[in-house]
């Protein structure tokens, strides 16, 4: 049975979707069958990194949650769709599927208004793993803690918590780590993003944070103007494999697969 890996952050703006897309792609480039679910229904975004826009998303996770589609119908084979773009030809080598959330205003508003059933979400995760014979399913969660993020943590065999070196992130991450411990997530890893490499010592920071949370650090992603300039337009680690940021992504990937 495939494994579920959730990527979470207590606060928004940590680069969660970017890290999810890059790590998932690196795992897929290793030959694994990989799925990504964007459960950040309130503010979806990971589809952008794979070159998707409103015109290409016919059915989304929202349709599944409202009973208008099967979960399989909402899964887009990225290796087939995005592979036509020369800038994304690396995706042709993968077996990678994306289940996007809707970016239509009315459908986001409907979630705000009516909510959805988390039980159905859980069933969808298991069904898509079976149907697409996935080795790994990555869940790009909504920031913070609520029913949906707790569900994702509860059913995941691995959890990546992303934090920035920021006091607000530190406190919130403590809550998430505490919950993950209670839910006995088999593999709990922290990823430090937007690290000021020219100002702090990476090794010392790793040790301090690892000790504070009693959790292993899967990788430290430096704050990079190159990544910022990419503006989530593509999978940076695949486009610039020799960049320090990309190397850190591969370190995280190895750690998660190890």
């Amino acid at each position: 049975m495939g494994e579920i890996i959730s990527i979470h952050s207590f606060r928004g703006g940590t680069g969660k979707s970017n890290v999810t897309a890059n790590v998932a792609t690196q795992v897929a480039l290793k030959g694994y069958r990989v799925g990504i679910v964007d459960t950040d229904i309130m503010s979806p975004g990971i589809h952008v990194l794979f070159g998707f826009d409103e015109t290409r998303i016919q059915k989304s996770l929202n349709d599944y949650l409202w009973g208008k589609a099967t979960i399989e119908e909402t899964a887009y084979a990225i290796h087939e769709v995005a592979g036509d773009d020369p800038e994304r030809s690396f995706l042709k080598k993968t077996k990678l599927w994306l289940i996007p959330s809707s970016i239509r205003t009315a459908e986001i508003a409907r979630v705000l208004r009516e909510g959805y059933d988390v039980g159905l979400l859980n069933e969808g995760f298991h069904t898509i793993i079976d149907d697409l014979q996935l080795d790994y399913l990555f869940i790009d969660t909504h920031p913070g803690l609520n029913e949906e993020t707790l569900l994702s943590i509860a059913i995941s065999s691995a959890l990546i918590i992303i934090l920035r070196p920021d006091q607000q992130d530190f406190q919130g991450t403590a809550v998430t780590v505490d919950i993950a411990r209670k839910l006995e997530v088999p593999k709990l890893r922290l990823v430090i993003n937007k690290f000021l490499a020219d100002r702090y010592d990476e090794k010392q920071t790793r040790e301090a944070i690892s000790q504070q949370y009693s959790a292993e650090i899967a990788g430290v992603l430096p704050l990079s103007m190159d990544v910022a300039a990419n503006a989530s337009a593509n999978i940076f680690s695949a486009m610039h494999p020799d960049h320090p940021w990309s190397k850190a992504i591969r370190e995280i990937t190895e750690n998660m697969l190890g």
Binding site: M42, V111, L112, G115, Y116, D117, V118, G119, N146, E147
Partner: peptide
């Protein structure tokens, strides 16, 4: 599992 996501 049950419970509605009903943030708003």
């Amino acid at each position: 599992f049950s419970g509605k996501i009903s943030r708003a």
